[in-house]
């Protein structure tokens, strides 16, 4: 150890200190960015929706509005659009009722283990389709195959019916299993899906529904 020209580059304390500083700096930066992001992804309020204030994650009452997915020239990718009002399961939902319905839906999405077949916002398993924009999927549009199959007149009723008896309406050899979803839970799940489709995902999935020539089917 009595070596003369001891370079700082081979000094253990130097690297220990550097590691601590770099780790500390990266962590602080992450925490700072986390605060900023949390502010931006906090759910909006019903008033935001009424006043046309755009939130990355809108309030639960977004289920009372038409939702589309359109190209924004300013941002260079598709963004969700919140249009005029439309009834959801035949009525307009108050802020409290909508929040309760979304709560039931999100809870059910976890307890029924959706994420271990489907992807939500692109995360999950890859056995079944991504659900990020499922609400505006052309398959469930007025002209899509699912409405006729379930014999329902609105999209929300068709999806709810499918969720309760998925293997009665097989679309492919790979089917969704019966998960014992009740009528109420199915309603909640549809609200959850509709809410998720209104989240601003920076253009993911890209070109959604391009093939059918319509990305804002309703």
């Amino acid at each position: 150890m009595a070596n003369k020209n001891l370079s700082v580059w081979t000094s253990i304390p130097f690297w220990r200190r550097s590691a601590a500083w770099v780790t500390g700096f990266a962590s602080i930066l992450l925490i700072w960015l986390t605060f900023d992001t949390l502010g931006q992804i906090t759910m909006g309020t019903d008033d935001d929706l009424k006043n046309g204030v755009t939130k990355r994650v809108p309030a639960a009452t977004v289920i009372n509005y038409k939702i589309g997915y359109e190209m924004s020239t300013k941002r260079g990718h598709e963004v969700p659009t919140i249009g005029e009002k439309e009834p959801f399961f035949g009525k307009e939902w108050s802020a409290d009722d909508a929040a309760d319905l979304l709560h039931l839906g999100k809870l059910t999405s976890q307890t029924k283990n959706c994420m271990n077949c489907h992807t939500l916002l692109g995360n999950g398993a890859y056995y079944a389709p991504d659900l990020t924009k499922a609400w505006i999927d052309p398959a469930w549009s007025k002209t899509g195959p699912m409405m006729a199959m379930t014999g329902k007149s609105t999209k929300e009723e068709a999806i709810a019916e499918f969720l309760q008896h998925p293997s009665t309406y097989p679309t492919h050899a790979r089917m969704m299993p019966e998960l014992g979803i009740t009528a109420d839970e199915a309603k909640g799940l549809v609200a959850f899906l509709k809410h998720m489709s209104s989240i601003d995902t920076n253009g993911f999935p890209r070109n959604f529904g391009k093939e059918e020539g319509s990305t804002n089917a309703h």
Binding site: I41, T42, V57, H103, K106
Partner: peptide
Amino acid sequence: FYTDNISMDQF
């Protein structure tokens, strides 16, 4: 923890 906000959840 549990949250109704799927973005917050995945964050």
